[in-house]
């Protein structure tokens, strides 16, 4: 087991003032995809490209591709299932991640 201080991200002397994040938008560095136990799978036959998944995704992990389909980026998708729940056409199914 590593000692606590070895697992620390930085020395206390390097902690930014007030623990502020001084670099805006740096949450893209936080790869939340490894939290996921369910993965959203899109059925393009049913998809009407309404973008509800894109709007509601809390991360946001969805982005439109060239054809206008909203595709999830699994680097950030936590598998919360909000997209599947909100989809008016039932085009998104949550599938268990295989270990």
């Amino acid at each position: 087991m590593p000692k606590g201080k070895d697992t620390a991200l930085m020395s206390w002397k390097e902690v930014p003032f007030g623990c502020y994040i001084l670099e805006p938008g740096n949450s893209v560095k936080f790869k939340t995809g490894d939290w996921r136990s369910f993965r959203p799978v899109l059925d393009k036959e049913k998809c009407i490209k309404c973008g509800q998944c894109y709007i509601m995704c809390p991360e946001p992990a969805y982005e439109a591709d060239e054809e206008g389909y909203y595709i999830v980026d699994l680097t950030y998708c936590k598998g919360c299932g909000i997209c599947a729940n909100i989809c008016p056409k039932g085009a998104i199914t949550m599938v268990v991640e295989e270990v």
């Binding site: 606590g4 697992t7 620390a8 991200l9 206390w12 902690v15 623990c19 502020y20 994040i21 805006p24």
Partner: peptide, 17 residues
């Protein structure tokens, strides 16, 4: 800037120190 982010166990104690 962001004030008040999460302090995961790898940073919380350093922040308090």
């Amino acid at each position: 800037i962001s004030m008040g982010p999460v302090g995961i166990p790898e940073i919380y104690i350093e922040a308090k120190k």
